[in-house]
Design a protein around this nucleic acid. Structure first.
Lengths: 244, 244
DNA sequence: CCCTTTTATTACTCCGACATATTATTTTGA
DNA sequence: TCAAAATAATATGTCGGAGTAATAAAAGGG
């Protein structure tokens, strides 16, 4: 190919993302947004890589990433096809990010909150049973961080995530932890939308404190109830802010 | 296991699995089994690919797959390092399969059943609320398939999976579906261990029918209770069979 | 008309080299 | 003596091409 084209071959490593990662990101968004529908077969690997002006290796590695997440499947002669949605690994953090990169689907967001509404109260109950003193301290510290910053700031949202993460860690259940971490990051996207539309609707500290108190008291039922309140309220806030 | 294909490296395909897939499988098992601990850095790309007697491209694509699942991270000069367990995407079906490829960890299995015990009753309740007539028919058909075959056969286990899948589809919640599909496949591995150690402990049809009846009656609470019974019982069976 | 065999297209695999980025080392200055 | 900056070393990242295996379609035979 033509050399000395350093200008045309611009480096996409703005955030330390590699080339194949950037391609996977691009294709992932295209698939999640419906630009490539399930059943569609992507044009050949030579054609596509030339269209993107990247090497075949980079394109192939990107396809491997997508295939690892269940988005596509490439078979000899048949080409690379987009798999049906049921095969997609929607819980993968990157897939989740791609889903929210385009215009977020309200039904999908509601599904996520519904799942969160199932997971988090149960997690709070488990945490109430198994928490150690260190777990309790971590939860308490996160709550203190929340009261120092508002949810409109990055620090405040980080503290909110820490609060939920600390509870998850107290469950001593690894699959539960990774699951809620995925959902939590997705929910973070939506809360960013939320605070964009409207400033914080109410003081979240008392509700969080109720969860903490129930876990401190080793009361699983109360912890689950308190957490259920918290999640339902978050869904309501998100919905109303997206309505307007 | 058969390792005759190890000698003839010319045709390394094992039933449709590509070379990079085989490498990813091998490395994935090595990581999940603890052979490579978090923080360990794999030997260089050239060294490792030569040790495996494969090209660098095949090895690199395998590493891309592992990186997509959060198992490793490759950085220039620093090498490819195994990420901490918290970054692993344990809900990925392939990762789950790798986790069960070695000797299964009882604590991990219990964690999975615990998660299943949270998810499935809630899913049954949602299904009871939203099921259509077609959903009900699918559940009924699956149950009929279960009564035709025993759980000791492949067909019987397939029918059991169909039963749970049909319920999940009735929830109209995509993330919930893929999540339970992952867990379900993992649980299938354990049931294979179970029936290997001992034949089926009891007739599972009546318990499943209770779930079906509750969903048919659109009774969420009853559906959740019936499903809870089912899952708890499955855990008990697995535990007792692994004890002996 | 259906099944088997053949053919051809296609994507996977492998190769070797160059470019790049990160880290470790060394050197210089305070 | 310590710290910071510049340099060097090395593994990763990237590239295009050639060979091979496998599948889908077409052709031939039953």
């Amino acid at each position: 190919m033509s050399n000395a084209d350093e200008a045309t071959k611009r480096k996409p490593r703005g955030t330390g993302r590699r080339l194949h990662g950037a391609i996977a990101h691009k294709l992932g968004i295209a698939i999640l947004s419906g630009e490539f529908a399930p059943g569609d077969t992507l044009s050949g690997e030579v054609a596509f890589s030339e269209a993107l002006d990247v090497s075949r290796s980079a394109y192939r590695e990107a396809v491997r990433v997508l295939a690892a997440k269940g988005l596509v499947e490439s078979r000899p002669k048949a080409g690379t096809r987009v798999l049906p949605r049921s095969r997609w690994n929607l819980l993968d953090p990157e897939v989740l990010a791609w889903a929210f990169a385009g215009e977020p689907d309200m039904a999908f967001i509601r599904s996520l909150f519904e799942l969160r509404g199932i997971i988090e109260p149960a997690a709070a109950a488990l945490a109430a049973e198994r928490r150690t003193r260190d777990d309790l301290k971590a939860i308490k510290d996160a709550l203190a961080g929340m009261s120092r910053h508002t949810l409109a700031t990055d620090a405040g949202r980080a503290a909110d995530r820490d609060f939920h993460d600390a509870i998850l860690r107290a469950t001593r259940n690894a699959p539960l932890m990774v699951l809620s971490a995925s959902i939590g990051s997705a929910v973070t996207w939506t809360t960013q939308f939320k605070q964009r539309a409207r400033d914080l609707p109410r003081n979240p500290i008392p509700d969080h404190r109720r969860v903490l108190d129930a876990i401190a008291a080793s009361d699983p039922a109360a912890a689950a109830d308190a957490m259920r309140l918290l999640v339902d309220q978050a869904l309501d806030d998100t919905q109303t802010s997206m309505m307007k």
